[in-house]
Every structure is written in C-alpha cells, then in structure tokens.
Design a binder for these strands. Structure first.
Lengths: 143, 143
DNA sequence: TATTGTTATACTCTATAACTATA
DNA sequence: TATAGTTATAGAGTATAACAATA
C-alpha cells in the first residue's frame, strides 16, 4: 500500500510516523469530512471556532495558515450552509467576527466526536503502549 | 494555535497525535511541496512511483484512494513537466503504465530526502524516546 | 459484459493582485 | 499610511457521469 521508500538518516522511525500521517491525511480525514457532509477545509475551520465566543477572521487566517482571500470563501460557504454567522466587531469596524449557529455547534460536535475516535492502527495498541505514546508525544509537542 | 478541543473518551493521547498530524498536513507538507516545486498531489504520486519499474495507473488509483479521473489529470501534469512517461502495457492494451524519467527520478529523490527529515517536534525527542516511539509505531502499523 | 482510462462538468481550495472600508 | 476583509482571476484537486478502447 504505502511503499514508504523514505530512508531517513536522522531517525528511521520517522518513516513510520510519516506513513501514519499520510494514511490519515489521505483516507481517514476525507472519510470523516464526507460523513459530516463538509469539505475538509470547512471541517478544519469549524474545528477551530470556539463554540462559546466570537472569532475574528484574522485568527482563522493565522490558524489555517493560508491567504486571507481563502478564508473569505470558506466562511462564505459555511455561512451559506447556515453553520456560522458573520458580524461586524463593535470595537474595530474593519474586523469581522465569526459566531457558530446552533446548527454549526451541532455539526462541530459531531465532527469532533468522529475525529476523537482513534484510527485502527492506534486503537489496537495495548493500554501500556498508548500511555507511553501519549507521554512521548506530550514531550514532543511540549504539553 | 491548535485549540485541540477534541476529547476522546477512548484514548486521550490520540488528541496529541491528531494535533501533530494536522500540524504536518497543514504546514510542513505544503512547505516541502513548495520547495520541490510541485503541488502536493503530484508529490504524493511521485513518491508512490517505483524508480526502477513501471507502475500501472490502476495501482496509483488504489494508492491515492481517489477517483480514476483525478489520476488522469495528475499524470497529465506530471507528464507535461517531463517527470514521467505514459506507455501502453504490452500485456493488456487497456492498461497504461507510468515510468519515471531521469528528471522525475531526481525530483523524487529530493522529495524523499526532505520528507525523510523529521519535523521539529520529533527531532527534539531524546534518542530513547525516539527508539520507543519507533517500536510502538511498528506495532501499530504491524511492521 | 466488464475493465481501463479518458473527457466533460461542477465544486472547492489555493495564491496573487487590486480593491474598499476603516483606522 | 497601514490593516481587515473582499473581489477577480487562474491553476489545481476532487467526484460523478458518460464515453472509447480493449478484454
């Protein structure tokens, strides 16, 4: 399947993690997005939104690490689906803030539930392995 | 940055791995693709091709887990860049096989080199942690 | 009839550049 | 002048459906 012909001099185990990442990126994430009924970029954006507070569009631009013009389009489509609302910020009238609608909060919840389910390769690890993996990743990501 | 509000009942550490995956998917992989000078899907395809043997298009369809019509387009663009060649298989004349050109092999090599470099979060792990991580991932992916 | 790959079409995501409105 | 967001445009990836060539 994944003919991981990557040979890392620096760390031969990274090859395995890369395989896992690519597997998730190309099969699991698209599948979950399809289930939820939204394209991946819109899922990503929905995930970033705070269900309890308004989010300035500028923050989405940073978190999605893409051009501002893309965010305009993504927000347009999420709004057209009735999942979010765009409002003008009272403080600085240049700024627009995004608020989830009730439908948006529900969809977001479904999305997070599905994302939260570990994929097959991870789910089949022993409790001990999962605990160790968790500890190592926490060190890697400094949490 | 990544407001990982995912709460997995099944395995709280999966949340961390998901953060890592999304981080890589949305910043590192696009950056490497830009360096190599190809869109991500074309990089993916280049990675899948065997430098020493022809690859039937059908195999690419399976490995990329997308519709056959997409592969036609991706292969078109890789061919237009002179990185691959499309040939009719001698055995079954319906089948077309893909062969890397010299330029394609060189680009693929550069791509694999960059992909092989562990990203910051992984690179800063201790040798012991990396070894353990490697062992766990091997069990997860059954290698 | 079934399979391999292509074409036509439509939607989405992406970046760049030029623009509007605020500050 | 600078910043937040929009529009226009163009290239790329994605799926569906209809199609040609071959088996």
């Amino acid at each position: 399947m994944s003919n991981s012909a990557v040979k890392s001099r620096a760390f031969e185990g990274w090859e395995l993690l890369l395989d896992l990442v690519l597997l998730l990126e190309r099969s699991r994430l698209p599948a979950i997005a399809a289930e939820v009924g939204l394209p991946e970029a819109q899922c990503h954006t929905l995930r970033l939104l705070d269900p309890d507070h308004e989010t300035p569009m500028r923050r989405l631009v940073e978190c999605l690490s893409c051009d501002a013009s893309n965010v305009t389009g993504i927000v347009d489509r999420l709004e057209a689906r009735g999942l979010i609302e765009r409002r003008v910020a009272t403080a600085d009238r240049r700024v627009k803030v995004i608020a989830l609608t009730d439908a948006g909060r529900a969809t977001r919840r479904r999305l997070l539930e599905r994302l939260g389910e570990p994929p097959e390769p991870i789910a089949r690890l022993s409790a001990a392995d999962r605990k160790t993996l968790c500890a190592i990743l926490r060190r890697a990501l400094r949490r």
